[in-house]
Amino acid sequence: MSSKRTGAEAVAAKGWFGAHRWLLARRLSQGVILALFLLGPLAAVWIVKGNLAYSLTLETLPLSDPYVLLQSLIAGNVPERLGLIGVLIVVVFYLLVGGRVYCAWVCPVNPVTDLAGWLRRRLAIKGSAHVSRSARYWLLAMTLALAGLTGTIAWELVNPVSMLHRGLIFGLGAGWTVVLAVFLFDLLVMSRGWCGHLCPVGAFYSLLGKWSPLRVTASRRAACNDCMDCFEVCPEPQVIRPALKGAGKGVGPVILAANCTNCGRCIDVCSKDVFTFGMRFDNRPENGTQTVPKTAADSN
């Protein structure tokens, strides 16, 4: 391994823009969503009202966060009609595109932890506290149990995700300390600590999108030159190996792990264009075993 920068090969092969396409799209998505929320309070243009817990777009389209409403339900409260319609729309959306699309394309904490991850790589900070990646599911169970035991949505008192988003729109106050804590934790204590190990919001959405059809697939995995750049940039690198290296074990090329966030960084950073977005159904083990043109591998 040389000391080259991660993604340098991709930039050389595809140009800077080609090697950052999905990253730019993602930042655009995060920015536009936040801007839509901010347009009301800052410029009095009320396209979207509310925040990620519940919002009303153009006074007609309700969108609600199924996780917080589930906690509310467990705490003993049934939402009103609009709240329920909002849950339905959001659940169907993430069932289709993948639950953790919320994490990579919507969540306002993602740029914070991505920045921490990027700095960690640039500053070559090694060493990371070891906590299982399944800790988030324990935390998820704890927040749901707590809602039932206390009869309140206890998690929302401290949830950094809603605290940041609500704070940006309604006034952050001391919420920035929590965001800073998450940033420093990811930078200095645990690599990809918050989003990749602990966040119960992400855990909830990963379960929601477990069977989603839209997936990243290593459709040209035979072309992989083992440069490891995808593992380096991936926030959930454990999801790549089965699909990328599974040809010999009869595993298909589609990344099926629920914790893939569909962020597309692996697509960007691969100089050999191994990865693409695809459908989970194109998952025959023989797919991607030979170096074939992308289009042929994709068609079923």
Binding site: G50, N51, A53, Y54, A75, N77, E156, G167, G171, G175
Partner: peptide
């Protein structure tokens, strides 16, 4: 147990008297 902190009441108050509690 019921309030999800969405701030819709804050937005729809014509007199802007409501605010969401900061941490």
């Amino acid at each position: 147990g019921a309030c999800i902190r969405c701030g819709m009441c804050v937005r729809d108050c014509p007199y802007n008297i409501l605010e969401l509690a900061r941490p």
